[in-house]
Design a protein around this nucleic acid. Structure first.
Length: 292
DNA sequence: AAGGGGGTCAACCGCTCGCGG
DNA sequence: TCCGCGAGCGGTTGACCCCCT
């Protein structure tokens, strides 16, 4: 019984991706854009399941991903968003455009959840322990709030263009290529590091050639937050816009500063508005116990 | 110096959702 | 309206790495 496998298990490779596979995948996406994952294994010759390809792209190869050390801001946001949204990592990730849902999930499970548990053990009430309003009611309110917040954000940041600019690759790739060397600080680099840099260069060339990833975006209208820059759909737009070429010229410093604004706006919104009732207050109290 | 244990993170699994026929 | 398929999402696993004994 059971459901049929998503793809032929026979001959499907599993486990860690090799640099060669990464390059194959990236160059395919370079030509065709992300989406239509079903066709990727056959068209690339990769012995991987389509899901695996998608996952690899969204969680690792996709430009614009920042890895390693979460900032205090991000940490706070995650905690609050988790309190609001529950374990909807994809939704949470849409507010942290440089992070993948997998990353956030891992970070939550390995760091934050433990932290909160510790606090709980110390007698501080946990966020997950109370759900004061009914779920349906709460979700409706949340959706409205989110929608309003997005609008406010876009307004505040003057996003008059319906299309968000594509993620500027330089900062993204800097992050990407530094992932193996800088973020994890050290040891894990070795052979793969150079390979990821190769891929970075590849991607850089791609984005220079075709600055509008529209192909990719259009190719699968249903692609999720992480692979698309749906206009007004997430803070990703904000981030994208802030990392314009001029800005990116200032390298790393620029990008973190640029992200600051939407983060603060969101925080304000999170702290002040939508969780204003009994829901958020305790959380806020919890937070202040952290040494952020 | 070596072994064990815990932590971290990339990747897999399976369920759900949404779209198109 | 129903059904099938593909994509997305969240939970879980397993391999690797680091630190401690």
């Amino acid at each position: 019984m059971g459901r049929p496998p998503c793809c032929d298990k026979v001959g499907v490779k599993k486990g860690p991706w090799t640099p060669e596979e990464d390059i194959l995948l990236v160059s395919y996406i370079q030509d065709h854009g992300p989406g239509n994952w079903r066709a990727v294994p056959t068209n690339t010759g990769l012995l991987r399941c389509s899901k695996s390809c998608r996952l690899r792209w969204t969680n690792y190869l996709r430009p614009g991903i920042r890895r390693g050390n979460f900032t205090d801001h991000e940490e706070k946001l995650i905690i609050h968003l988790q309190a609001l949204l529950g374990n909807r990592w994809a939704a949470i990730a849409s507010y942290l455009p440089e992070r993948t849902d997998n990353d956030i999930k891992n970070y939550w499970n390995t760091h934050l959840h433990k932290k909160l548990k510790k606090l709980e053990a110390n007698g501080v009430s946990s966020s997950s322990s109370h759900q004061p309003i009914s779920k349906g009611q709460w979700e409706r309110r949340l959706q409205t709030d989110i929608h309003m917040a997005k609008q406010a954000l876009c307004d505040a940041l003057s996003f008059d263009k319906p299309d968000c600019p594509p993620p500027e690759l330089k900062p993204s790739l800097a992050n990407y290529s530094s992932r193996s060397s800088a973020s994890s600080t050290s040891t894990t680099t070795t052979t793969y590091a150079s390979s990821t840099e190769n891929i970075s260069r590849l991607l850089e060339g791609w984005m220079k050639k075709s600055p509008t990833p529209g192909k990719g975006r259009a190719s699968s209208g249903s692609t999720q937050h992480s692979e698309t820059n749906n206009p007004g759909d997430s803070v990703l737009c904000v981030e994208s816009a802030t990392t314009t070429p001029d800005v990116s010229a200032e390298s790393g410093k620029g990008s973190t500063d640029q992200v600051q604004l939407p983060m603060e706006l969101l925080e304000t919104w999170l702290f002040d508005e939508s969780i204003g009732g009994s829901y958020g207050q305790e959380e806020l109290g919890d937070l202040e116990l952290y040494e952020f």
